[in-house]
Design a protein around this nucleic acid. Structure first.
Length: 319
DNA sequence: TGGTATGTTCCAAA
DNA sequence: TTTTGGAACATACC
């Protein structure tokens, strides 16, 4: 389900009911989906208030604020004796200690617990949110949940278990691998030109690379390349300035259109949006191109199903 | 049964 | 060094 428009849609839908709420309990049922660990995540988020809910790339981000003396239920974490030491008066200036392990696994003893910090959630292939109260019985695939101070329970559902729930005290470091936001001011033709000319890669895998441009996934990449009339295997450093301008415009247009329609429903996992019926090439193999009536072709590029109009998106020449 | 799936990461090969 | 291909992750669906 989730590319930028789907994540943005979820953020907008949940913002009003999450901002200002305090997380009073966190349960993870699949340990590997909680990072850096279930214990560290619980320690980082429980007792804190969600100051702001927003999106960075395909991550749902909750800016956290504060923490209570009894915030982390340390003594209730069985088998974690190192956590049985409750936060001391150091919480008065916003920090407490948390045992941490180094990369090679040694316990360094302690590091600082930040009063604030950030909760990041990545939905990967099949993740999504839900409210417990909206069901008589628990819906399927609940992998984690958050109890809030207003009595509500936010569910993190994820059939394929690829999604991630992350706590970080250093947001900059945690997101330093991410590229430019395509809907922000800085995403100019010049900025895109620099990104494209700086490497010699095929367009489609380059657009899917989150360290270059964030938010595009398989569907919106196909749509953007179609709108820009560019073949997905064109080399990034061989586009004319005019083609780069078209590509920038197309990327922003398809993402904004996706947001406007609340994203794209797909394979029954995500049922939110209506963008599906506005797709022009993705998943349309054999159907006539909306622009020139040529049948849409299905290709395999970078191991991803890829859809193009062979006439509108020629490998060389112009449409 | 086999192929495919909206994402990401890691490793090997070119 | 950079880029590409393949596999892996876990599960559902056609």
């Amino acid at each position: 389900m989730p590319e930028l428009p789907e994540v943005e849609t979820i953020v907008r839908a949940y913002r009003a009911r999450l901002e200002g709420r305090r997380i009073v309990r966190f349960v993870a049922r699949v340990a590997k989906q909680a990072q850096p660990s279930v214990t560290a995540l619980r320690w980082g988020i429980v007792g804190k208030r969600i100051k702001r809910l927003w999106r960075r790339a395909k991550y749902i981000v909750a800016d956290l604020q504060g923490g209570q003396r009894d915030a982390a239920p340390a003594s209730k974490v069985h088998g974690q004796t190192s956590l049985s030491v409750a936060p001391t008066r150091s919480t008065t200036h916003g920090q407490a200690s948390l045992p941490m392990a180094t990369r090679d696994g040694r316990d360094t003893g302690r590091c600082m617990r930040h009063a604030d910090g950030h909760l990041l959630i990545h939905l990967r292939m099949s993740g999504g949110f839900d409210w417990a109260a909206e069901h008589d019985r628990e819906p399927p695939y609940v992998r984690a949940y958050f109890d809030l101070d207003d009595g509500n329970r936010l569910l993190f559902c994820d059939a394929r278990k690829f999604g991630l729930v992350i706590y970080t005290a250093d947001f900059e470091a945690a997101t330093s691998h991410l590229g430019i936001e395509p809907l922000e001011r800085g995403f100019t033709t010049g900025a895109l030109e620099a990104l494209l000319r700086g490497r010699a890669r095929q367009l489609k895998p380059l657009l899917l690379d989150q360290s270059v441009i964030t938010g595009l996934g398989n569907i919106y990449t196909d749509e953007a390349l179609f709108q820009a009339r560019l073949h997905p295997t064109r080399r990034s450093d061989r586009l004319a300035r005019q083609e780069i301008r078209r590509l920038r415009t197309a990327i922003q247009a398809v993402l904004r259109r996706g947001i406007r329609h609340h994203g794209t429903s797909f394979d029954g996992v995500y049922r939110g949006g209506g963008m599906r019926k506005h797709l022009k090439v993705h998943g349309q193999a054999g159907l006539p191109c909306k622009r020139c009536k040529t049948p849409i072709e299905a290709l395999r590029i970078a191991q991803r199903g890829t859809y193009i109009c062979p006439r509108c998106q020629p490998l060389d020449g112009n449409c």
